[in-house]
Design a binder for these strands. Structure first.
Lengths: 339, 339
DNA sequence: ATGAAAGCGCTAACAT
DNA sequence: ATGTTAGCGCTTTCAT
């Protein structure tokens, strides 16, 4: 009933042509105020809503943005980062009147399934794709497709990709420098999954900080923790025999695992080992002691990604856009700087 | 180039009518094998992909399912439940060749913004909406709209809604009964947000277990923790003066908070206070001691919700469907049953 | 300022 | 088995 309502019907009831009705609907120009009002009243009275698909077909834009998260199941919900990123992007889509379509790619095989769907102009007006080992092949293909694409995180080997990232190098460097200034000189690191640029860049920041203080990078003090709690736990266990006096963890989740390992070894944080991590997500304040950590603006990150995509959609992919967002060291208890 | 490709073009190149080309595209009947093959070859050679929006308009179905999560920002990423639910639903959509559109409703006001979009047949073939205080008004409206809707979780006051839920009552009852059998008789409870049915039902299960053992419900031993870590922490602090010998927590996250409060009070789990919770999400195995908890099948839950929706889409909303999924007590360390 | 007409790219009922 | 003919509901030139 309220459903068979079409723009033609509205036009008829308002005594105008469908064109004029369309103009009113889209707040277009060239409509006499009184006519506009009349049409609007009919729209309001009937509760008419335009058929979004018909609009899409005619206007050649769907007002739908796709978010592609290439990530294994476990990584996806063990890491508080993704829900938060998704939330930020969803919010931004909302604010710009776009609908968000979510694509979770669990395996490389999913790529083949998704690509035809999303690369075809029509369903999606644009795509935000998160970097990650899975799906990095997709990035290349997407960039040459006719769907505007923006990458969340720094992609490897895609020089003309538009992307937004946080300054992982500077952030990590700041975290490690803080530990150095507190007088530590055997600073170990728990790295993330080294197949990701986030992990690589944070490691780079760690090295830079040490080198700036004329300290060598001791590889026996570096262990891969894959960004997860359990990974951090195990990596920390590997590091303990080498007696670090401080640890920089590439994620809060790993820091949680490190805390466990340290306690089980009969040591305490920050007394025996000082700890600084990266993220500033909920685990940071849940942990005891609370984590000193490099804050990254995840929400703003999502907003920036969407805004960049909108820009690319409007003005084309060249030149490639680039936004590197600042991080900020948040000092809490785990570093020992405050009591 | 590869984009101006339309079904007409394919038909022309294959020397058939557009109808026949369409038949081949949709694996329809009544096409001679040789013709079918010829068309398929042209499709393959040209890399043709049908325009999904045009298909939607003509066929009156979008192959898009909407997931509506009415939840405040904080709740959304402090609780590992939602990412996991989303993941399960996304996976199920995938498997059934549907695209997932995500709608995060942060405020009641968002309702007004979303409703027109999603209630209009066209964009969405169906909707899965998660229950929650925000958005419960939406449920009523959606149920009377012409978009097939299924609720994730038991909705309050919507007798003819189709929904899938876990057996919160039985699950909670099993958890508390376990504590009773271990000999505890001052069992406190940390409840979730009591405006949600999940929290209410788990409380009901708690009461039932006590009553089955002829124990009264002592309200001084019950405190609301809103499902969050910090909420559980504070609720536990309120309970400690009343000397419970065991605690049933309505979520793993709250149990984490409770652990903190208990340790800070100089007590240990399970020695001084035994602990059983609900969820069996990642926090359960990260916590020390590991949590004895009522496992709920979140992934399967999402799958069931999608399958129910598909059923409703196909066969109409009546009679209302109902699926209550079983839970299972997972015994770990926090209850003290094992060493 | 308004409307007629031509699509947008596809599906489907109806011939043949 | 194949093609013809209408749409699906809207936007958008192009006249007027």
């Amino acid at each position: 009933m309220t459903d068979k309502l079409t723009l033609d019907e509205i036009a008829k009831r308002a005594g105008v042509s469908r064109t004029t009705a369309s103009r009113v609907l889209n707040d277009g120009p060239n409509v006499r105020p009184e006519v506009r009002e009349r049409v609007q009243r009919v729209i309001a009275e009937t509760g008419y809503r335009p058929h979004p698909v018909a609009q899409s077909l005619a206007s050649q834009q769907s007002h739908v943005i796709g978010l592609v998260l290439p990530r294994r199941t476990e990584a996806l919900f063990n890491d508080p980062y993704f829900p938060r990123l998704t939330q930020g992007i969803a919010q931004a889509c909302n604010d710009h009147d776009y609908t968000l379509a979510l694509f979770l790619m669990q395996t490389e095989a999913d790529e083949e399934k998704f690509y035809p769907r999303i690369s075809r102009k029509g369903l999606l007006d644009g795509i935000v794709i998160q970097v990650g080992q899975i799906g990095d092949g997709l990035i290349a293909r997407l960039l040459t497709s006719d769907v505007p694409t923006v990458v969340a995180g720094r992609p490897l080997n895609h020089p003309n990709a538009s992307y937004v990232d946080v300054d992982n190098v500077a952030g990590a460097c700041a975290g490690v420098t803080h530990l150095l200034q507190l007088g530590h000189n055997r600073i170990g690191m728990l790295t993330g999954d080294m197949r990701t640029t986030a992990a690589l860049d944070r490691y780079t920041g760690y090295c830079e900080a040490l080198q700036a203080h004329d300290l060598p990078v001791d590889e026996t003090l570096v262990s891969e923790g894959y960004f997860t709690e359990i990974g951090g736990y195990e990596a920390m266990q590997r590091l303990l025999p080498h007696k670090p006096d401080a640890i920089f963890s590439a994620s809060d989740a790993m820091a949680l695992g490190a805390l466990r390992a340290i306690y089980e070894a009969g040591l305490t944080v920050p007394h025996d080992i000082a700890l600084v991590s990266f993220d500033d997500l909920p685990p940071a304040t849940i942990a005891r002691p609370q984590l000193t950590t490099v804050h990254q603006p995840v929400d703003a990150f999502g907003v920036k990604a969407v805004e960049m995509l909108l820009d690319v959609m409007k003005n084309g992919p060249t030149p490639p856009r680039r936004i590197i967002m600042d991080t900020k060291l948040v000092i809490r208890q785990s570093c020992g700087a405050v009591s």
